[in-house]
Simulated assay, not measured.
Amino acid sequence: MRVLEMGQLLAGPFCGQLLGDFGADVIKVEQPDTGDPIREWGQAKADGASLWWPVLGRNKRTVTLNLRDARGQDIARRLIAESDVLVENFRPGTLERWGLSPEALWKINPGLVVTRVSGYGQTGPYAARAGYGSIGEAMGGLRYVTGDPSTPPSRAGISIGDELAAVFACIGTLVALHHRDRTGRGQVVDSAIYEAVLGMMESLIPEWQIAGYVRERTGATLPGVAPSNVYPTRSGAMVLVAANQDSVFRRLAAAMGQPELAADPRFSDHNARGARMEELDGIIADWTRGFETDELLETLHEAGIPAGLIYTAPDMLADPHFAARQAIVSVASRTLGRDIAMQNVFPRLSSTPGRVRHVGRERGEDNHSVYRGLLGLTAEQIAELEADGII
């Protein structure tokens, strides 16, 4: 399967990464003079090189092409004619201005799946607005419920809105390809960031519409779900314990040496525990403070109680379970001059697993292999396009 990836930053390119992880031939198109800004992004760099791009650009061929020029648009049509999927995350209407509307592209490739990721979708009164992930997170409801109630709404430490829109775009692309294989016809996959976020908001809408209830920020806990919190150990470390299900809470009470808690009307069922969350958390914290961290975790795990530490990158790299499942892999990077560790391909397929074949490549690194090997351009034609700034 060949995927032509246009656009930049995260929402579209992460969809391309997911498809490329499982073996699609993803060809990423970038402007000749600038490239994808994500190549320069990231809070930490190695000798000025982005550590974000090697992950997001992995498993993709990279070409440069000036899509604002008529000659570049003609080359794009030739690439699209050889592709199964076009992924783009420009502002709605951009492809149409370039003469690359889905209707025009289906005339040269009827089976093409056109996957479009945007802030607000391709239709509706907000469609033409600039849309970033943070705005979609706010509009979709996630920001309002994230953080401590004493502070303004918080954001997650990742670009979760963009990434959710990309995941939904990937799902839609696979469904559309299944339909294409049955009918021969492509279609548009319209993934909006705010809708991808909204899709994750559980029962937020009917809670208001039916019960008049508005979810609020609750910090480290979920209202009515107890015990499920972080609890201190003797050394001051924090262990996350999730024992809110009735049967699991009975096991926790037994492990605490207080089996009577499970029969106490204050804590005997889910609703009762949720109503007395603070009281119950205090009882559990008094117990966990009597243990060192490893001792507490061993006790909880032996009792069949979900528990664990809150990991950072160093914890992940040192953890034997990550290592046993190869959740993190090391891949050679010519740019960095060393191997770079990154997350592996998920989910795991038993017969056709994906893999990280290479890190993100340099801008335009595959110009010759794509334009000569796929489109049949001569070396002279490629040189002329380079001289004219088309590639």
Rank of each mutant, 00 (worst) to 15 (best):
R2A: 02
L4I: 14
E5W: 00
A24S: 13
D25G: 09
V29W: 13
E30S: 07
P32D: 09
P37T: 11
W41F: 11
G42W: 15
A44Y: 15
S50C: 09
P54T: 01
T62A: 14
L65Y: 08
D69F: 10
R71W: 01
D74Q: 12
A81L: 02
S83G: 00
L86W: 02
N89R: 05
N89S: 08
E96H: 10
L100K: 10
E103A: 14
A104W: 14
K107F: 04
V114K: 04
G124S: 12
P125S: 14
A127M: 14
A128Y: 07
A130E: 04
S134Y: 06
I135C: 13
I135Y: 15
A138P: 02
A138D: 03
V145H: 01
T146H: 11
T146Q: 12
D148H: 14
S154A: 05
S154R: 00
S159L: 10
S159E: 12
A166L: 01
V167E: 14
A169P: 01
G172F: 03
L177Q: 10
L177F: 08
L198K: 00
M200Q: 14
G219E: 01
A220I: 05
V225E: 09
V225C: 08
G236H: 12
G236A: 12
A243I: 02
Q245W: 10
V248E: 04
F249Y: 04
R251K: 12
A253F: 07
M256S: 01
E260A: 13
E260V: 07
A263E: 15
P265T: 07
P265W: 10
A272K: 15
R276L: 15
E278W: 09
E279M: 06
L280R: 03
L280N: 01
I283L: 15
D286C: 12
F291A: 01
D294Q: 08
D294S: 06
E295A: 13
G304W: 11
I305F: 12
P306V: 04
M316Y: 03
Q326F: 02
V329H: 07
M342Q: 14
F346I: 13
S351T: 12
G354S: 09
V356F: 05
R357H: 10
H358A: 09
G364A: 07
D366W: 07
L375R: 02
Q381H: 13
A387M: 09
